[in-house]
């Protein structure tokens, strides 16, 4: 994945200071439903030029957070998206924000050329020529109805439309659910090659963490409506470490307060540490940076218990 590597090199070393040029600023974001709390005082900041993974178990409040950002639901607390209040300024906000909420939300009756004509008609920042260039790479033709397309083709059309919009924030909610591996790879590849730049922000929620792990610049873990972890990928690499420990050193490893322990092959164990001394870890065994999914499992331990 040289593309992903390039994206990681390009990113700024630290996220921009909150408030100045923040894309999303949330403070004490809370949303109560009749008999459940979906968001419980979540606070986070997302800056421009970042690709942020909002990751959490089912029912953690991911979708509610996205809906609040997109002005699709009411909430308590403070939330500014591109400096606007998504509740009151939704139509203006949507000139600068795009989202793909799910696969297959394009209306089934619409034709490719109708969809393009319509978006060109209502969206001031839509570049029709660009959209047609993207579509030329697919098998879609102008007269085709969404009803006649496969799930993968629908996403191709949706992505071609969205990528032709010069927005500052793109929100993706499980954008590749139910797609085969070819479409999934192509989806993220297109986003990186033809869309993302330092002025744009992409916010992704997905359960397929492995697939987005190498394109993310930032991580937001959400659990029970609260932000459980907010970090850049660089900081994450510096802060968290995994060590493969031989059975004879297990007790020593446990003494260093690991946040997670799991069995590996040949009687070895894998320990995960938060902010541990790297030299002492090196004495225990082979140290490596944990994968996002392993870190996620470690931090979300006990969620369903």
């Amino acid at each position: 994945m040289n593309v992903a590597a390039a994206a990681i090199e390009d990113r700024p070393a630290t996220p921009p200071a909150a408030g100045s040029e923040t894309t999303v600023h949330a403070q004490g974001l809370t949303k109560r439903y009749k008999n459940a709390v979906a968001l419980d005082g979540a606070s986070f900041d997302i800056g421009p030029g970042r690709i942020v993974g909002l990751i959490g178990p089912n029912g953690a409040g991911k979708t509610t957070a996205l809906k609040a950002i997109l002005g699709l639901t009411d909430f308590e607390g403070q939330l500014k998206v591109l400096g606007m209040d998504p509740r009151r300024e939704r139509p203006q906000l949507m000139r600068e924000v795009c989202f793909i909420a799910d696969v297959a939300t394009l209306p089934r009756w619409i034709r490719v050329n109708e969809a393009i004509d319509f978006v060109a008609g209502v969206h001031p920042r839509f570049d029709r020529a660009k959209c047609e260039r993207f579509l030329a790479r697919t098998k879609l033709h102008a007269n085709q109805k969404v009803r006649e397309m496969s799930k993968g083709m629908i996403v191709q059309l949706h992505l071609a439309i969205v990528m032709a919009i010069d927005a500052r924030l793109l929100v993706l909610d499980e954008p590749t659910l139910g797609l085969d591996i070819l479409y999934r790879k192509q989806f993220y590849q297109s986003l990186l090659e033809d869309y993302f730049d330092e002025n744009k922000t992409i916010l992704i929620t997905t359960h397929q963490v492995e697939e987005v792990e190498h394109i993310l610049t930032d991580l937001l873990f959400i659990r029970d409506g609260k932000i459980a972890l907010s970090t850049t990928m660089d900081e994450m690499g510096a802060r968290f470490a995994e060590v493969l420990v031989n059975s004879d050193r297990v007790e020593a490893a446990r003494a260093l307060n690991p946040i997670d322990e799991r069995a590996a092959v040949f009687g070895k164990s894998i320990f995960m540490y938060d902010s541990a001394d790297p030299e002492r870890l090196a004495q225990l065994g082979e140290v490596k940076r944990p994968s996002v999914s392993d870190l996620f499992v470690a931090i979300m331990k006990g969620t369903y218990a």
Binding site: L93, M94, I100, A101, L106, P107, H123
Partner: peptide, 17 residues
């Protein structure tokens, strides 16, 4: 109908009041 088939999410991703 667009709430039932979720295409409302597409319409509402556009700058339309």
């Amino acid at each position: 109908d667009d709430r039932r088939d979720r295409s409302i999410l597409f319409w509402r991703s556009l700058p339309i009041s």
